[in-house]
Design a protein around this nucleic acid. Structure first.
Lengths: 170, 170
DNA sequence: CGTGAAAGGGTTCACTC
DNA sequence: GAGTGAACCCTTTCACG
């Protein structure tokens, strides 16, 4: 169990006006929209829109543009949530674990946690057999692991492509 | 606790050749690349590349294109993993819960689970106070909830923008 | 922030192999 | 299935008001 800081960095967040938020929201749902169409959608001229987008991109609010692929269509039909505890919480222990877990492509997300377990992982696998392999060859082999608790997703209820912005606009 | 089917749908997955995978991989990391540049990157003529992309998009492998925003920059600096159990597992109970949870913009993902809890949610909030509000006004108010267990992410170790494809290519 | 025009690219055909 | 070439459309990006 960990008892550390709750905030890793002081990422200052900018203040966005209604148009900025409209731009972000639009790019969230359509990452490939052209600047001209985006401008029209938010009621701006193309040049003004382009200038704003530049600023937004440089500010770091936009972490990137990505095609979202379907795990299922790629053959990865199971999602597992894996809770893991380590034998200690020394910085070195955490770092070694984290470096190792980065190398496993099945792991889509990994959080260092407060609470009962040290890490929560979200992993995708093709099927139960694939999961067995992953558990044997990867999860159990990660350094310093003393406890693993896996459960499986039966269904995706919510899987939002993106983060928090809707909250501002709700 | 639930004991249901493990696979919701038979999503047949297509077979992709090396060029398809290169296209998908490229769009995964750069969702805004133009068809012309994409074609060059994968060693195809623009027209051939455009044809393939059409097929890929229609096949459903590509679920969409999105700008990935920074929660942190938007002021959402905490991530919580919330485990929830309901009072029963009748279809109606699940449906009512799921309809309600959809309406909460803080919930970025939600899985129906096998195992000890019925659902796992990943939610973002601004701070502890915001979490308290969420817990009081949203989580506790969701229908049929009998047990809630929250833990907090101290740090993102892995947060891949996308899914499974790297596994094929590793 | 908007306008307008110039310049450069991008997309998409029909056609060919 | 893939490449070529050309037409057309669209986009971006200035300088300026």
């Amino acid at each position: 169990m960990l008892r550390t800081w709750l905030f890793s960095k002081n990422v200052r967040h900018m203040v966005f006006d209604a148009i900025d938020r409209a731009i972000l929201k639009r790019l969230q749902s359509d990452g490939r929209i052209s600047n001209a169409n985006l401008a029209e959608a938010v009621g701006l001229s193309p040049s003004a829109c382009s200038r704003r987008l530049d600023i937004l991109e440089k500010s770091g609010v936009i972490r990137g543009y990505h095609a979202r692929l379907s795990d299922k269509a790629l053959g990865y039909r199971m999602t597992a949530i894996v809770h893991i505890s380590l034998s200690g919480q020394f910085a070195k222990t955490l770092t070694e674990f984290e470096k190792a877990v980065q190398r496993c492509p099945n792991v889509l997300s990994c959080y260092l946690m407060s609470g009962e377990y040290d890490y929560v992982l979200r992993v995708v696998v093709k099927d139960l057999e694939d999961y067995e392999r992953l558990h044997r060859d990867w999860l159990s082999a990660l350094p310093h692991v003393v406890r693993i608790n896996s459960s499986f997703a039966l269904r995706d209820v919510i899987d939002r492509p993106n983060t928090g912005l809707d909250i501002n606009l709700a």
